[in-house]
Computed example of a mutant assay.
Amino acid sequence: MSKSGPIVLLEDDHDDRIFMETIFSELGIENERVYLKNSDEALEFLHNTSKSLFLIFCDVNLRGKNGLELKREIDNHKQLRLKSIPFVFYSTSIRQEQVIEAYTELTVQGFFKKENDLSEAKTSIATIIAYWKLCRHPNM
């Protein structure tokens, strides 16, 4: 993890991508953002990037493999697991069984509800980013 490294956002909804970019811009977050549409793109990017990533924001409801399946693949791949990239779910629909699975079966570091209100969403994103900027990490 590099605190100045790129933030990966797995989001397949174009409007949500624009909303997220607005939030990051308004918060003055300077990290490069890498937007990916699905789990296959994410796995290809994670395998091939030489960049030290800061954080992964993942929607649960992705086309094809969902976010939970993606996280399971990352956890099961030694090379990707060693990168120790902080991974949080940021999704509009949150079912309790998904939250339980994320924390008990996967090594997820957070599960957050995507807010529709710009002010609330900015508060959530700012809190998540601030936490990871302060957090100690094994790859630092």
Rank of each mutant, 00 (worst) to 15 (best):
K65V: 01
R72S: 13
S39W: 10
H137M: 07
K3R: 09
N31S: 05
I125H: 14
E30T: 13
Y90W: 14
I74H: 13
A121T: 06
N139F: 00
L10C: 03
S52T: 09
S50W: 04
K71L: 15
G110T: 01
Q96G: 00
R81G: 04
D75C: 10
T104E: 15
N139A: 00
A130L: 13
A121R: 15
A130V: 03
L82Q: 15
F87Y: 12
S4G: 04
S124W: 06
T49P: 14
P6L: 00
S25N: 10
A121C: 15
K51E: 12
E105P: 01
L80T: 08
T49E: 08
G28W: 09
R17S: 02
M1C: 11
M140V: 00
I94G: 05
K71E: 06
L36Q: 06
V8L: 14
H137C: 04
H137K: 07
L134M: 10
I129R: 10
D75W: 11
C58L: 06
N38M: 09
C135F: 13
I125G: 05
E73M: 15
A102R: 05
I94R: 09
I100Y: 07
S25T: 09
N76R: 14
D117I: 04
L68A: 06
R72E: 14
I85L: 12
W132P: 13
R17T: 00
D59S: 05
L134C: 11
V8G: 01
S4E: 14
Q79P: 13
S25P: 02
N48W: 06
E30K: 15
K133F: 00
R63N: 07
N66D: 15
D16G: 01
F112S: 02
K51I: 01
